[in-house]
């Protein structure tokens, strides 16, 4: 498709602080179960709030609360940026 849409696909670990995106899919099924239980579901909006002083883990707001996860875990969550 030549007219590529403005929607950009990325994973959660690539967000900048304050940016948000909508969850579209997961790349690790085992991890996805835990993440979904914690409220990270497809269609849900996430916002990156903090990055730990040493660059990892990160803290996001999702489903109305704050969740921290490691970057490797965040990388299994695919997003489309808002």
């Amino acid at each position: 498709m030549r007219h590529s849409k403005k929607i950009q696909l990325m994973n959660l670990s690539e967000l900048e602080i304050g940016e948000s995106g909508t969850i579209t899919a997961f790349t690790d099924q085992h991890m996805s179960i835990k993440l979904m239980e914690m409220g990270c579901l497809p269609g849900e909006e996430v916002r990156l709030d903090q990055i730990a002083p040493l660059g990892d883990p990160i803290a996001i707001t999702v489903s109305g609360y704050k969740l921290s996860l490691r970057k490797t875990e965040a990388a299994t969550i695919l997003l489309k940026s808002n």
Binding site: L35, M38, P57, Y65, K66, L67, L69, R70
Partner: peptide, 10 residues
């Protein structure tokens, strides 16, 4: 498997 998926309470 080690997780660090953890709630940060208010």
């Amino acid at each position: 498997k080690g997780y660090f998926i953890m709630e940060l309470p208010i």
